[in-house]
Design a protein around this nucleic acid. Structure first.
Lengths: 130, 130, 130, 130
DNA sequence: GTGGTCTAGACCACT
DNA sequence: GTGGTCTAGACCACG
């Protein structure tokens, strides 16, 4: 699983890492129980600040995607644990609203928007487009 | 059309305004040609700084949702002009990916995610939940 | 000679009038000695403020394109008088610089830029594109 | 690369900065990848407000001339990226028309105007006259 | 250190 | 009245 950082986007680096790891889990590149590179390793690999790598993992942990073991470092959680994270559905809906509104303004019907979302989900599931 | 600002969240004020106005257009509360409150009025209403209100409108203008009329101030653009904004579909897809990935991790199939998106679009279209 | 005002551009109305009248002279729609509509007439025709129409004519007069007669109002000056306006060449060069720089950045060679300028001049001379 | 601001002219400060940086890129004083002074540095150097410097860079970014790197601040974009900016040619033509018209009125034939434009482009390309 | 956000308040251009 | 520009100064996010 290779991470690619864009230093010239307005999306913070730690968010890019977070997004790509979530996408890796969704696409099957990272399976539950898999070990992630250590914070130090990650920072060195991507040539980023240690605190940035740290923040990315901290977010993933808080969101329920990762857990930390004393010896093994950060590992991918089991799917049923991810699904048990409290409030994640409401959170998803909240983040979806602005996109749904934007799509409507751009002329996409609810059905068309749903189709676009389905396509995005399919693409991610197959691990494509990375 | 009433705007509500959350001064506690880390989402910038001008982005909150932007989101709510886009939602207002999508939900029919704001129709093409409608005048928006003047930047000064908006700033006074929301008790925010003039420049903050200014920036919100400037973004909406750059994104193709508003135009500025020399006499009437900011007004909602025609729908076909909003749809003509270049790259808006690719932009939407890019913003959708992280949400699709998150949904998959949380156990939603592409079909279920599409259903959620459709529901969000319907809600916004009806102008509900504001 | 019909003037068209765009109320939704950032170019001030008086500048739009000024530009279109200059273009009318360049394209032959307005010939030296021709009478222009009175300030009142112009303001009524375009549904603009009297002062705005006034300002447009004042600029054209200051730039040497129009002159004002007691009885006949504003009329187009003779070409040799327009050419005698002091500093107009230097003025033109000054306004041209930013465009030349922009063209170079966009990959246009000096020759290509000159070609573009020639084409623009031809178009205006034929009175096209209005 | 030295910037000079005229505080007397009605041309906004941020536009003057914008023009001079574009000219600097066109003239080779600023090459792709080059770092620009930080907004704070620029504001201090020119003795202007931070927001004014900010706005100048924001415009250059929106126009495709600059990009912002998370570590290095604002840097000059690659030429092929500048050329990929959508609608820049049409934009250039639009800005060129009033100058072409003015030149014709002042007695310059399309060929002579093209020559003037070519000269302006050459001057800028050599980095002269700054 | 970088840019991003926000405030309070002023003056100007345009219509 | 509208928006546009500019100032002085503060606090935060990011790396």
């Amino acid at each position: 699983m290779l991470l690619r950082i864009d230093f010239e986007t307005d999306r913070p680096i730690y968010q890019q890492i977070r997004d790509q790891i979530v996408e890796g889990i969704a696409g099957g590149a990272l399976t539950p129980g898999a070990r992630l590179p250590s914070v130090r390793q990650l920072a060195a690999d991507l040539d980023i600040n240690l605190q940035t790598a740290n923040k990315a993992y901290a977010i993933l942990q808080a969101e329920g995607f990762l857990t930390v073991h004393r010896r093994e470092g950060f590992i991918v959680r089991a799917f049923d644990e991810m699904r048990a994270a409290p409030g994640h559905l409401r959170d998803l809906e909240r983040k979806l609203r602005p996109l749904a509104a934007e799509a409507l303004c751009r002329g996409l019907s609810p059905d068309e928007f749903a189709g676009l979302c389905r396509a995005a989900s399919d693409t991610v599931k197959k691990g494509e487009g990375r």
